[in-house]
Each structure stands twice: as structure tokens, then as C-alpha cells.
């Protein structure tokens, strides 16, 4: 297990190197430079700026400099936010994005497990049909489309919730629902299928036959075994949600990493795009590794060699 973890961790390094190299080369293929403005700068100024930021050196040296800085946690300069570097920009939005994602994840777990379990226990009743209906419809509707319907319902029509912003719980409701509904629906689907499969197992019949109370059967025998496939579905969503959705953040004007990023894209801030790509790739790789290792803790049958 430990050897597996270390190997996976080490493997992330070349992958990220690849990602950074591809990003770096792509950025250099972008037409135009950072000093292009409506009014052209004097050639001497451009030359000085290039020297100041090392842009006059050979491209492999520039890549080396970029890597060396990135290793020290400096993801480079942003061209649209001139007072802050890319690292500071990401760090300033990260707590908001991560807490929004964590709430959405919690919602997905609670709602998804609840619905899935209810559906499986009450199979072929209206409860089951309703939750299956919910699961199939919301599993395919993207968060930002759902967000629009929420906006129309709760803000434009009922005037219950503000259209966006960050700070009060009222501003949290819609983005959490928009982000969490899709994973919740998937979780409900898998939970139901997995519970039904476990309910048909011999050991459940044995438990019933020896007269265990239904609650004990459901909890000790069914739920624990049914949860494993659910985890494999929920795991990847952790990375997906904690890193956030810049579309949903833009829709609800949440000042997270995503929205800062969108503003950067709009301003053609290549430095910010490049830093964000690297940051996100690293965060997703590490989170997914953590989730994979968690499986082995939860399910003793899984052994990583």
C-alpha cells in the first residue's frame, strides 16, 4: 500500500512536468505578446520589459525559469491583475471555492445516499419512482443550466434569494444546489443499484432468517457493503467540486478562483491561464490519489500492489 502510494505520488511529477511543458509551449504559440496594447510601446521599453521578465532569453531557459519559480510556489505574473501574482490570485479565491465545493459535496452525499437508500428499501413504491425520476433527470442537467432555473424560480419570481454574491447563507443556497445536484443524482442512482444488489445476497437472507431486526440488517449488512461502489462514484466528484466550477461561480457572482479565472480569460491574461492550468492539474491529481488510497482503507479487499 505504501509502496503503491509513493509510486503514484512519484508518477504525478512527470505528468505535471508534461502538463507544464505543453502549457508553456502552447502559451508561446499564442499570437501576440504581453506588451501588446492599443498604443504600441516604444521599442526600447519593450526591450527593457523583455529583459526584466527574462523574455529575451532562449525558450528552454524561459521554461527552466518558469519551472524553478513554480517549484517555489510562484506561478508567475498575471497581466490583468497587476498588483498580484497568479499564486496570490488563486489563494485569494481558493477558500471560497473550496468551501462552496465542500458544501456541495456534503449535499451530494447526504441527498444522494438518502434518496438512493429510500428508493432501494421501498423498491417499486412511489418513493422509489420519484427518486429514480429525480436521479435520471438531474444526472444529465449541467450545473449552470440548473442554476438558471433556480435563479428564475427563487430570485426572479419568488424574490426569496439574492441573485448572487458571497457572505450570507441565502447566497449559498443556489450555488450549492446547482453544483451538488448532479453528483447527488449520480450517487442516488448508484446507491440504489448497489443496495438492491446487496439485498439479494445470501448473507442478507441468512441475517433475515436468523431473525435480526430489519434496522440492524440494513445498517450492518446492507449499507456497509453497498457503500463501496458509491465511494468509487463520489471520489472523483470530490476533486471536481473542491476545485469548483467557474461557470457556476460566474453565474452567481461568487468571488472564487473560477470567477477570477474567467475575468482573466476575458482579458486574455495568459499568465493567469497558464498558472491556473498547472495549479488545477496538480490539485486534481493529488485529490484523486487521496481518494484512491481511501478506497483501500474502506474496503479491506482492495489491495494495491
Amino acid at each position: 500500500m505504501w509502496r503503491y502510494a509513493v509510486r503514484r505520488l512519484l508518477w504525478i511529477i512527470p505528468v505535471l512536468l508534461g502538463v507544464s511543458l505543453v502549457t508553456f509551449l502552447l502559451m508561446h504559440a499564442v499570437p501576440g505578446g504581453p506588451w501588446d496594447q492599443e498604443k504600441p510601446l516604444a521599442p526600447q521599453v519593450v526591450q527593457n520589459l523583455n529583459r526584466r521578465y527574462g523574455l529575451d532569453r532562449p525558450i528552454w531557459q524561459q521554461y527552466g525559469m518558469f519551472l524553478a519559480r513554480a517549484l517555489r510556489g510562484d506561478l508567475g505574473v498575471s497581466y490583468s491583475y497587476q498588483d498580484r501574482g497568479v499564486t496570490q490570485i488563486i489563494l485569494s479565491g481558493l477558500p471560497i471555492t473550496a468551501s462552496l465545493g465542500a458544501l456541495a459535496f456534503a449535499f451530494a452525499v447526504v441527498a444522494g445516499l438518502g434518496l438512493g437508500m429510500a428508493a432501494a428499501i421501498k423498491q417499486n413504491t412511489p418513493v422509489d419512482y420519484l427518486s429514480v425520476l429525480f436521479a435520471t433527470s438531474f444526472a444529465s442537467i449541467p450545473g449552470f443550466v440548473l442554476g438558471i432555473f433556480l435563479l428564475i424560480l427563487f430570485s426572479a419570481t419568488l424574490h426569496w434569494l439574492p441573485t448572487g454574491g458571497w457572505g450570507s447563507w441565502k447566497q449559498l443556497v443556489m450555488p450549492v444546489l446547482a453544483l451538488g445536484a448532479l453528483p447527488a443524482a449520480y450517487t442516488a442512482r448508484i446507491t440504489r443499484a448497489s443496495m438492491l444488489e446487496v439485498l439479494n445476497q445470501d448473507y442478507v437472507r441468512t441475517a433475515r432468517a436468523k431473525g435480526l431486526p430489519e434496522v440492524a440488517i440494513q445498517y450492518r449488512h446492507v449499507l456497509k457493503n453497498a457503500l463501496i461502489p458509491v465511494l468509487t462514484v463520489l471520489g472523483p466528484y470530490l476533486a471536481f467540486l473542491v476545485t469548483g466550477s467557474f461557470i457556476v461561480e460566474s453565474l452567481f457572482s461568487v468571488p472564487g478562483v473560477g470567477r477570477l479565472f474567467v475575468q482573466g480569460v476575458f482579458a486574455r491574461d495568459y499568465g493567469l491561464i497558464m498558472g491556473s492550468v498547472l495549479f488545477y492539474a496538480a490539485a486534481i491529481a493529488l485529490l484523486n490519489l487521496a481518494v484512491d488510497l481511501l478506497y483501500a482503507v474502506v474496503d479491506p479487499r482492495i489491495k494495491y500492489a
Binding site: 486574455r268 491561464i273 492550468v277 492539474a281 486534481i284
Partner: peptide, 13 residues
């Protein structure tokens, strides 16, 4: 390893 939408935006630029 690239986040999908970010790579698309990068390529698009």
C-alpha cells in the same frame, strides 16, 4: 491530467 475546460480555453486562445 489537464482540466478539460481549461485546456479548451488555452487551445482556443
Amino acid at each position: 491530467a489537464f482540466p478539460d475546460l481549461l485546456l479548451i480555453i488555452l487551445l482556443r486562445s
